[in-house]
Design a protein around this nucleic acid. Structure first.
Lengths: 202, 202
DNA sequence: GTCTATATTAAGATAGAC
DNA sequence: GTCTATCTTAATATAGAC
């Protein structure tokens, strides 16, 4: 339901989305089952389908709610700000998203891995346009000699790759670091700040 | 079958694994179906199960064949070589793996995303040990002042993240770059060489 | 070795009582 | 609004003919 009326509808809709996020982000769309989602949500399977007409509808509701949040940090990059600080702020916010919303990151990763069947239009439309717009800003900064010259779109790719890695490959990160370091994010933040400062220094 | 006897068994086993790679890498283990694999392989479903006893057996055969190949470039990093050139060679080989074996990369990504249920032991064992061994080499290079000091394990994570991104998020990379640039790898190679040269310069 | 036919289980979705 | 029971389809796997 996009417009829940009562308190209980509001609460159950959210409970279902949260449970669905848990399951879809781990198994992908086809690998997820309504039985699992129902169990995690603590509701019966028919009750899920009272709130959302189908499995696909739940998935769509999740993805469309997610995309704006996911692109906000990039939108927030200010063309009039200090170039290096704007980029580092973007890296920092993106890493915070990985830390605070790892399931959302994995849901997105699953969708892209599977060929983005449900969000291809948005990727080729809004996302493409936003990246090209910000790439133009980066290019201007490079022309003005305020950051080093690199390929602007690949620069953005590298920010995505480096920050999302900590959410999407969480299991591997923890296994490789070993049980000594339970929270990799503080060190990851320092590492990425160093990396981008050195890359962008003129 | 791990030990095919006849030519035809050899060929069919490989056809099945190739088809399974195609399907598993796109949909994950649970999202993949034997029907799809059979169709891609051009064989009947029961014929698949003549060669492999179960869906799980096919998946295991794929993963165990993959892991060695995947870690070879890291193993090849020579402690006695020139530090920057050894690291750049590793980045280059890893990027070539993404370019030449994107399905393998996505199969691995799917498995990790899903919590690595089938290869957790290898991740925590062999992979952990190999990374710690190579991290020690990197630390020595830093102590000797031959590369800049950064967290060695996060350095390795960043190589993985940046190179695998081009295989795993292929759809997004192409959509964002637009139809003008069909092959992102040459530019990606230049970008990553610049990035790691600047990061590691003393 | 390969296929058709089928057993068996699980999954998405619906009916209808409460 | 929520549940039990159930329909229907699709999926893994097996039997058995050829």
């Amino acid at each position: 339901m996009s417009k829940p009326r009562t308190k209980i509808q509001q609460r159950n809709s959210e409970t279902i989305l949260d449970a669905a996020l848990e399951v879809f982000s781990q198994h992908g769309f086809r690998g997820a089952t309504l039985d699992q989602i129902a169990e995690v949500a603590g509701l019966s399977k028919p009750n899920l389908l009272y709130y959302y007409p189908s499995k696909e509808a739940i998935h769509v509701a999740l993805l469309s709610g997610l995309l704006d949040t996911w692109l906000d940090p990039l939108r927030a990059m200010d063309p009039e700000g200090d170039p290096v600080e704007e980029l580092l702020a973007y890296v920092r916010r993106k890493l915070e998203l990985s830390r605070d919303f790892p399931r959302e990151s994995r849901l997105f990763a699953n969708e892209i891995l599977q060929g983005a069947p449900r969000i291809r239009a948005v990727i080729e439309g809004d996302l493409h346009a936003l990246v090209q717009e910000k790439a133009a800003v980066l290019t201007r900064w490079m022309d003005e000699g305020r950051i080093a010259r690199v390929h602007p779109v690949h620069l953005i790719f590298s920010i995505w790759a480096l920050t999302q890695h900590y959410a999407d490959f969480d299991v591997q990160v923890h296994a490789v670091l070993g049980p000594g370091e339970p929270d990799p994010y503080p060190e990851a933040g320092r590492y990425l700040e160093t990396l981008f400062r050195r890359l962008l220094a003129v």
